[in-house]
C-alpha cells in the first residue's frame, strides 16, 4: 500500500507556543490509522495542522502527490482531505438537510451532491428521520453522525476524525465505530484520534502513540494493543 499522506519533520502550534515537535507521520492509503495519547499530547493540533486550520511553523506535508503544507484549509478540502473536528462543531441553526448541502461546498464535491446525500441517508438512517430538524437539537450521537456525513459529503480521499466518540454513550460510540468500518470499506482512508484506546486500536490497522507533541511509538495496531506499556498507560490494565 502506498502512502496517501506524509508529514515530514513538522513543527506546529499556536502563536509562539510550539505543540508539535519534529513529527514524522504517515497515513497509508486504504487503511485506518489511529493516533492515541493522553490529554495535551498534541493529537488535536496534529489534526488541525494536517487539515490546514493552523499553519505549520516548519516542515512539509505531502498528500496524494502534492505539497500541501502551505495550502489553506479549503484548498486541501478541494483535493480530498477532510476533517471532522473535535466536539463535532455542527451548524446549530442549519437543518440536517442544509448541513449536508453545505458539506458539498468544495468544488469537486458540488456535482452529484443529491445522490451523495441519499447515500448518507442510507448509511445513517437516523439522519433521514431527522432531516428537517435543526442540528443543534440533535442528540450527541446524532450530531456525530451528522458531522461524519457532512465530512463525507466533500468526497474525501482521506477523512481525519478528531475524537468521534467524545461524550457519546458506549452504545452510540460502538455504532459510530462500526460506521467507520463501513466508510473504510467504501475505499476512504481514515485517520482517527481517540481517547478510547481499546476501540481505536481495535479498529485501526496502524497506530501512533503521541506524548508531549512527539511520536513516542508506532506500529501495527494489534502489536501496540499487545504491549505492556500501552496497556498500563492507556488502558489501566
Amino acid at each position: 500500500m502506498s502512502n496517501l499522506l506524509e508529514a515530514t519533520d513538522i513543527n506546529a502550534g499556536y502563536g509562539e507556543m510550539q505543540i508539535l515537535k519534529h513529527v514524522n507521520f504517515v497515513i497509508r492509503e486504504g487503511a485506518i490509522t489511529a493516533v492515541i495519547g493522553s490529554n495535551g499530547a498534541g493529537k488535536t493540533t496534529l489534526m488541525r495542522a494536517l487539515s490546514g486550520l493552523i499553519a505549520l511553523q516548519s516542515g512539509a506535508i505531502h498528500f496524494d502527490g502534492q505539497m500541501i503544507g502551505k495550502l489553506p484549509a479549503y484548498e486541501r478540502l478541494d483535493i480530498g482531505l477532510a476533517l471532522v473536528p473535535e466536539g463535532r462543531l455542527v451548524f446549530p441553526d442549519f437543518t440536517v438537510h442544509e448541513t449536508l448541502r453545505v458539506g458539498a461546498f468544495a468544488r469537486r464535491a458540488h456535482a452529484g451532491w443529491k445522490a451523495r446525500r441519499d447515500q448518507m441517508y442510507a448509511l445513517f438512517p437516523r439522519l433521514l428521520q431527522r432531516r428537517s430538524s435543526r442540528a443543534g437539537s440533535l442528540s450527541g450521537g446524532e450530531q456525530q453522525m451528522l458531522a461524519l456525513a457532512r465530512g463525507l459529503m466533500s468526497m474525501p480521499k482521506l477523512l481525519l476524525l478528531d475524537e468521534p466518540s467524545l461524550g457519546l454513550a458506549p452504545m452510540m460510540a460502538d455504532e459510530v465505530f462500526s460506521q467507520l468500518r463501513a466508510i473504510r470499506d467504501q475505499g476512504i482512508t481514515i485517520c482517527i484520534v481517540e481517547q478510547n484506546v481499546q476501540a481505536a486500536l481495535g479498529l485501526a490497522d496502524y497506530g501512533y502513540v503521541f506524548e508531549d507533541g512527539q511520536v513516542r511509538m508506532e506500529g501495527p495496531a494489534a502489536d501496540l494493543l499487545g504491549l505492556g506499556s500501552i496497556r498500563e498507560s492507556y488502558l489501566g490494565l
Binding site: 487539515s51 490546514g52 486550520l53 484549509a73 479549503y74 478540502l77 462543531l89 442549519f94 453545505v102 468544488r107
Partner: peptide, 15 residues
Amino acid sequence: RAIREDETAASTVGV
C-alpha cells in the same frame, strides 16, 4: 451562513 453558525466548522467544509 456557515461562517455565522461556526467559523471553524465552515473551514472544515471548504468555505
